[in-house]
Computed example of a mutant assay.
Amino acid sequence: MPLKKQRIAIVGSIASTILGFRGDLIAELVAAGHQVFAFATDYNEQSRILVRTLGAIPVDYQLSRFGLNPITELKTTWQLYQLFKQHQISLSFCYFAKPVIYGTLAAWLAKVPLRVAKIEGLGRPFTENAEGMRKKARLVRAFQVWLFKRSLPKAHLVFFLNPEDKHDLIETHKIKVQKSDVLSGIGVHLERYAQVAAPVSPIRFIFVGRLLNEKGIRYFLTAAEALKKRYPNTEFIVLGEPDSGSYALSRQELQHYVDKQVIYYPGKVANVVPFLAQSSVFVLPTYYREGVPRSTQEAMAVGRAVITTDMPGCRQTVKHGENGFLVPPHDQEALEQAMLQFIQQPALIEQMGQKSREMAEKQFDVKQINAKIMQLLAELA
């Protein structure tokens, strides 16, 4: 039975995730006759046009992505409450931690009839660093759990991207939810990420992601420098923008590796597909609490072998020894040994890349994932 017509608020943080992560779902909801309002904090003229092209209405709101000022957070909740009332929202669909917490609370206060939350990884508060959890991080985690305990029970349905996140929140932290389900990932449009034969001469390793410590960028760069000395024909590509803040790789550090010709860094790119097509192996040595990394799903769809960490979310993307290798987080030697296997046995590139594509078709087809979401939303109504 299809979902009866709704006025749906898709509430995220920045416009790029509305377009990149929710675009296919929004298009399907609009095609089914629903009115979709896409909430983001940083719309510009171009992103507004792109959202309208999907058939949705862009809605601005204010959210401090990293701050914990209670007054600011209350203002965000109140603003969302007013916007839900103004647009007569009948179904809220909030994703990422802060929009889930404050958007779900606002929807409950506004008496939105159907409320859905989507946990796409537990993020920095649940990320263990190499030295263990610092006191401040433990406090932030405790506060976030406290907020989840007050917001998630007010959602009629909570989506997770991996079973470990679900277990940590529901079982370990005893957060009660009305109904939950585990999706296999955000999903990718397989036609847009068509399989392409991987080059083996030269072999190219590619990193795609935010240039943050937790994403493993420094581990990748250290491995690239070490392997480049031994195998000078091997190439290394880095895609992602330097961030600000203490957790990020600086532009100066990045430029050091560019100047030494260790890596190729093309700067900000609008389309990663050509770079994935030119690469041989995808590497993400993250120790961040991922949902299921979208960048890895894209690489798998293109048919790339994967090296990533044995962490929640990442485990869903690699069958060790079949489509790539799982390495322990923070283990520089294990990472370099995994990369070395592809250099010494280039036949693995095609063999494991083919397995990645098969896994992507089975697990990460956005059409199948969105069909499941639509079905579960219909069951709520």
Results as ranks from 00 to 15, higher is better:
residue 2 P to F: 02
residue 9 A to S: 10
residue 12 G to H: 01
residue 13 S to E: 14
residue 18 I to V: 01
residue 32 A to P: 01
residue 35 Q to S: 13
residue 37 F to P: 00
residue 40 A to M: 03
residue 42 D to I: 02
residue 43 Y to R: 05
residue 44 N to R: 02
residue 51 V to C: 07
residue 51 V to N: 03
residue 55 G to Q: 07
residue 56 A to K: 09
residue 56 A to Q: 01
residue 60 D to W: 06
residue 60 D to L: 05
residue 62 Q to A: 11
residue 63 L to D: 03
residue 67 G to E: 07
residue 68 L to V: 02
residue 70 P to W: 01
residue 71 I to R: 14
residue 71 I to Y: 12
residue 75 K to L: 09
residue 75 K to G: 08
residue 78 W to Q: 13
residue 80 L to K: 09
residue 80 L to Q: 07
residue 81 Y to W: 15
residue 83 L to R: 05
residue 86 Q to P: 02
residue 87 H to D: 03
residue 88 Q to K: 15
residue 91 L to S: 07
residue 95 Y to A: 12
residue 96 F to N: 12
residue 97 A to L: 12
residue 99 P to D: 15
residue 100 V to G: 12
residue 100 V to I: 15
residue 105 L to P: 00
residue 109 L to S: 04
residue 112 V to I: 03
residue 114 L to K: 08
residue 117 A to W: 00
residue 120 E to F: 05
residue 121 G to Y: 03
residue 125 P to A: 06
residue 126 F to A: 02
residue 130 A to C: 00
residue 138 R to E: 14
residue 139 L to Y: 13
residue 140 V to Y: 13
residue 144 Q to L: 14
residue 145 V to Q: 14
residue 148 F to G: 08
residue 150 R to W: 14
residue 159 F to C: 08
residue 161 L to F: 02
residue 163 P to H: 10
residue 164 E to K: 13
residue 170 I to S: 01
residue 171 E to V: 09
residue 172 T to P: 04
residue 174 K to C: 08
residue 176 K to C: 08
residue 179 K to F: 04
residue 181 D to E: 15
residue 182 V to F: 06
residue 183 L to F: 06
residue 186 I to P: 11
residue 187 G to R: 05
residue 189 H to S: 13
residue 190 L to H: 11
residue 194 A to G: 14
residue 196 V to M: 06
residue 197 A to Y: 02
residue 206 I to H: 02
residue 206 I to K: 04
residue 214 E to K: 13
residue 220 F to K: 09
residue 220 F to H: 09
residue 222 T to E: 14
residue 222 T to Q: 14
residue 223 A to V: 00
residue 224 A to I: 09
residue 225 E to I: 06
residue 226 A to S: 13
residue 228 K to R: 13
residue 230 R to D: 13
residue 231 Y to D: 00
residue 234 T to K: 03
residue 239 L to D: 00
residue 243 D to F: 06
residue 243 D to M: 12
residue 245 G to Y: 00
residue 246 S to F: 02
residue 246 S to Y: 10
residue 249 L to N: 00
residue 251 R to S: 07
residue 254 L to D: 05
residue 256 H to V: 04
residue 256 H to F: 07
residue 260 K to N: 09
residue 263 I to P: 05
residue 266 P to N: 01
residue 266 P to M: 02
residue 270 A to R: 07
residue 271 N to P: 08
residue 273 V to T: 11
residue 283 V to Q: 05
residue 285 P to Q: 05
residue 286 T to M: 08
residue 288 Y to Q: 06
residue 290 E to T: 00
residue 291 G to D: 00
residue 291 G to V: 02
residue 294 R to W: 00
residue 298 E to N: 07
residue 298 E to G: 07
residue 300 M to H: 08
residue 302 V to D: 09
residue 303 G to K: 04
residue 304 R to I: 01
residue 304 R to Y: 06
residue 304 R to G: 09
residue 306 V to N: 12
residue 308 T to A: 11
residue 311 M to C: 11
residue 312 P to V: 04
residue 313 G to Y: 07
residue 330 H to I: 10
residue 331 D to Y: 12
residue 332 Q to C: 10
residue 333 E to V: 14
residue 335 L to C: 02
residue 336 E to L: 11
residue 340 L to M: 08
residue 343 I to G: 05
residue 362 K to D: 14
residue 363 Q to W: 12
residue 363 Q to K: 15
residue 364 F to V: 01
residue 365 D to N: 15
residue 367 K to Y: 12
residue 370 N to Y: 10
residue 373 I to Q: 15
residue 373 I to F: 12
residue 374 M to T: 08
residue 375 Q to C: 10
residue 375 Q to E: 15
residue 375 Q to P: 00
residue 377 L to Y: 10
residue 377 L to C: 02
residue 378 A to R: 10
residue 379 E to M: 13
residue 380 L to Y: 09
